[in-house]
Amino acid sequence: MKRGLFLPVVSIFGFLFLYVPIVSLVIFSFNKSKLVTVWGGWSTKWYGELLNDPQILGAAWISLKIGVVSATLATVLGTIAAMVLTRFGRVRGRGLLTGMVTAPLVMPEVITGLSLLLLFVAMEASFGWPAGRGMLTIIIAHTTFCMAYVAVVVQSRLTDMDDAIEEAAADLGARPVRVFFDITLPMIAPALISGWLLSFTLSLDDLVIASFVSGPGASTLPMVIFSKVRLGVTPEINALATLIVVVVAVGISISWFFMRKRVKT
């Protein structure tokens, strides 16, 4: 049947489209030749160069620090926002909060970046904080847009949860804070973990917003990559991309393994 063949063929083409660039990055990271597309034999020399490039290593370290701090802050703030939106009923300003929580998800990065930078400049001019721009301003910016993602993930988990479970705890004598830590938190833990990981990834990946709100001395990894890539293809970056792919693949496999184990028991 025609239809029987059409779907798999398009799908195979689609998956190839998604994965060929990644595979080609990995293959050419082992290319001896500096000319990325001319195969010059196997080599791992680009990995060696990557590990001896202080600019990339420094930027990676900065990005990791920013990622961990913003993901953690975003998880805390996003979870609180999700709790307010799902569990606090009709509080004043609920509509405003809903709008502000979901808007960053569809806001073009250039606008978020520009607006935050202009805010930081205005704030510094008015009362001297934050003094200059750097890691702190990037963390604030990343926390703001990441918390939206966390809030959405946690909110959907909270909505799926049976309200009666929390009511039962209250009924048995637990105060609201106790209910949250005894019942709600353990039950939404998986959503918190995925929210944190998502935030961490988004923070590590962000070029546009960081470029706007960063200052001298706080170049993140994407900013360094972008400036290198703009000048042309560099095999070193291929090696970096391969390392990232490997880390992600290992991470996904581990979580896949644990999820399957969990389903079995």
Binding site: Y19, F28, V38, V229, I237, A249
Partner: peptide, 27 residues
Amino acid sequence: ILIVLPFWTSFLLRVYAWIGILKGKGV
């Protein structure tokens, strides 16, 4: 999972990969 997987790798690097594929002497 295969659809979601690329999300978790760097967007910037995946776009960069296309330079190597699409350029004049590319793949």
